[in-house]
Design a protein around this nucleic acid. Sequence first.
DNA 1: TTGAAAGCGCTAACAC
DNA 2: GTGTTAGCGCTTTCAA
Lengths: 330, 330
Amino acid sequence: MKNVADLAGVGVKTVSRVINRERHVSEATIARVLQAAEQLQYQPDVHAGNLRRADRRTGTIGLLVGNVANPFSAAVHRAVEDAALERHIAVFASSLDDDADRERASIEAFLRRRVDGLILTTVHHSQAYLGGELEQGTPLVFVDRRPNGIVADTVLTNNAESAASAVGHLAEHGHTRIAYLGDNEEIFTAKERKRGYLEALRRRGITPDERLITDGLTDDAKTAVAVSDMLALDDPPTAIFSAQNLITIAVIVALRRVGLEHQIALVGFDDIPMADLLSPAVTVVAQDPSAMGRIAARRIFERLDGNTGPARDFVVPSRLIQRGSGEIRA
Amino acid sequence: MKNVADLAGVGVKTVSRVINRERHVSEATIARVLQAAEQLQYQPDVHAGNLRRADRRTGTIGLLVGNVANPFSAAVHRAVEDAALERHIAVFASSLDDDADRERASIEAFLRRRVDGLILTTVHHSQAYLGGELEQGTPLVFVDRRPNGIVADTVLTNNAESAASAVGHLAEHGHTRIAYLGDNEEIFTAKERKRGYLEALRRRGITPDERLITDGLTDDAKTAVAVSDMLALDDPPTAIFSAQNLITIAVIVALRRVGLEHQIALVGFDDIPMADLLSPAVTVVAQDPSAMGRIAARRIFERLDGNTGPARDFVVPSRLIQRGSGEIRA
DNA sequence: TTGAAAGCGCTAACAC
DNA sequence: GTGTTAGCGCTTTCAA
């Protein structure tokens, strides 16, 4: 900057004014400074500026998701990025892989880099350690999962309600023996979806059968076992509600292996790629990750713009997409 | 930092030493400083430090891809992130959407934030504007597409060769009327893949038929038209080579609409999700985006560690995955 | 409209 | 082992 000032024959402050488009600089000086900057290929250093600037904003936010390579996370990421672009904000992204240590390490790494805000899908059992930051005014918006031990803005799918609608849909097609296949119950979303499943059964006077309920399906092999165990029952399920996209895919594979994919109804939570090209096409309750990311980003910006209201929940509705597998009758 | 120093009853430099784990500090002082830092919830500011630090590294790299929500880009991103994590480097990610203006804007935004290096899949017709940065020592690694107007490290799939192997595979199954459906020919990868297609035909003495070759399929509707036009020929193709994943999916849809998916052979370039659950399962030449991202990140780090050798090409081989659609005989 | 001086939070260099 | 001083590249404050 000094070099540019010397070359243009002005003081550093004038260069600063030109770069930041402040007023009260004559056209002639502006032109001279710009020309000098161009000639020296000058790139301002935002961090040096932020050190002294009043608002201390870095124009950067951090995004923590499950896995940037997972379509759900990727859609959230993309939506956040698009919203950030409008405000010239850069996005740090990090995958957590359900690893609580990684969560804390990533957050610390971002905080050290002085991000203006954080959008996070967390895995640690408590986010109380973020209380200090929140009080200091760093905007925090949680996506998909509610934080524990702290009250903050949260963007959520109406998990229980959506799950209930999926199960209700199966019941409407004559099913009473509806299986539940879900993820680890410690995960907020998994718990909610199971709650919705049970609620839907209750509402229709169907007594839950523990043999038709399996949690903790963290890999395909476990899901395959769970499906074949259920099918081996004297009174096997005639329909399946799978509470997560990877589980849905594993269920499809398992049903095909025994040739029952056209006999047993299936509704999945979360959309899966190519769902309409499979046979049968897969009925799902689809979340709206783009909307979730967009809403989270907007909320961060509201907070950065001075909104200090109480923490809010933003509920993003999901949508039942009927494609075939969920419309198989009992 | 000053506050921590005061509370611990030491000088700021000692705090700095403790934070940076330098030697020559007594255990007792370390403990006192750490305790004070904890009490004040002190978070060091990396940017302030980097301002004065000798190497001026920010521990940050920028990643520019087509679209973080596209599975190929997402896989590259994930691999880059994993490699970066080991070195405690944070990753800025940005989608370009084949928009040249966005390319320049994103790069400038990252450079202003003083990223240590850049991994990029570019879209602008020339990257000559990056020559200055490269000379100044900012490591640049291009992924998937070679830059124009500048010589720099590049990680590539062997596009032509892979396309040729796909077409050869179809020829080995008795096909001589093999269609080519590809993206805009201005894109480096599209051009290379078409070259491979033509080369494979030539090698087997098959004369290319212009009516079986269509470029510029930038959306599904165009692909649908191209497929139905070809099928309406007096001597329609008996096999199709689709040069990009989105095109492959559109071709599948088009073939199904006329019920020919089990009659006409298909090999796609790039893997597609759920490929093995479709009927027929889809044969592809699959790229290895994870390997590409990993290699790109490693190269950046090599450069950061002082390697100043000439720019290199890194060729990542692809793999033919036979699943059914490509093994349909003529 | 412009510039000089001070200072943001930290580290380099050197002194003790 | 530890502290002091200067200065990184910029913006603020205030004077001209």
